[in-house]
């Protein structure tokens, strides 16, 4: 309001001249100091006030910064049963109507029309045939979707408060206690995996079950998958299943490769129609 009055006043020069020293300093301090205090001064590493406390709970595995965790989804194995979605929902207490992971059904007909549906995110499975497709079906398959845990994640770049970040072991997670719920990351994510959690009102997304991995367990969806369509592991561990797949002749693709986000989620058997 003050600023508006100030700007609308045509006789600005006179207004400034009229100020005495105290008045000028007051005006100057009003905005500048408050603004510069926490924005201009970089907050970060090397803070002299910090005591770096190191205490891990006993049941947690130490972070492994040498690991390169990857997730592989084998589309040719997925049967669309929805077990992964149920496991994910119950493991992470995801509110109804929101999904950390979901399964899409792609149906492509002979005229190259592509039909995609995902009733209730695939939570109840896909037990009914689609009846709205007139032409003969050429190809159909299920595509499970989840967070890509990009190496160069757009959602991290846009977060104004540093609430989302890549952990030293490569997981992209959201600090719910720090998030202000601005929703900027929701727009930045090219894969649409983020949402504002109805219960916490902060950004939320799949963490590849970081809390399970650090306890030496597989992500809930990988554990629940009956056909082994979802695989998870450390690509730098030569004995892991994912490492063997990555070094096999299997064709692995990622979603929206051209965006340069370098996802750590790979697909086997992904058709070119999948976006």
């Amino acid at each position: 309001m003050k600023l508006n009055n100030f700007l609308n006043n045509k006789n600005i020069t006179q207004d400034v001249i009229d100020l005495d020293r105290r008045g000028f300093i007051n005006k100057f301090l009003e905005g500048t100091v408050a603004g510069s205090l926490f924005v201009v001064v970089p907050m970060g590493a090397g803070d002299i006030f910090h005591e770096l406390a190191e205490d891990h709970e006993k049941n947690l595995l130490a972070m492994n910064p040498d690991a390169k965790y990857v997730f592989i989804v084998d589309i040719t194995q997925c049967i669309g049963c929805g077990s992964c979605c149920v496991a994910d929902k119950k493991e992470n207490n995801v509110p109804d109507g929101q999904y950390r992971t979901w399964v899409e059904r792609y149906v492509i007909d002979m005229l190259e029309n592509v039909y995609v549906d995902s009733p209730n995110g695939g939570l109840n499975g896909f037990n009914e045939q689609r009846t709205d497709i007139e032409n003969e079906i050429r190809d159909s398959f299920f595509v499970p979707k989840l967070c890509n845990h990009c190496e160069d994640a757009p959602c991290i770049q846009v977060c104004p408060v540093g609430a989302t970040f890549t952990t030293p072991d490569g997981f992209v997670i959201v600090d719910g206690t720090h998030c202000v719920g601005c929703g900027y990351c929701l727009q930045a994510c090219p894969y649409g995996v983020r949402f504002i959690n109805e219960k916490t009102h902060t950004a939320d997304k799949c963490t590849w079950c970081y809390h399970r991995v650090r306890k030496g367990k597989l992500p809930a969806c990988v554990n629940a998958c009956p056909t082994g369509a979802r695989k998870f592991g450390d690509a730098n561990d030569r004995n892991s299943e994912v490492s063997k797949i990555l070094h096999s002749p299997a064709i692995l693709t990622v979603l929206k490769k051209d965006l340069g986000t370098a996802p750590a989620l790979f697909y086997i058997g992904k058709r070119e129609e999948v976006v």
Partner: peptide, 30 residues
Amino acid sequence: RHFLTPDSWGKYGHYRADYIDEEANRSINY
């Protein structure tokens, strides 16, 4: 800075490092 910056801020980067273990300590259901 002293009062408003979280304790573990900047340990690994521009975020609160303590959250990593907070997240990792979340109880598991399955």
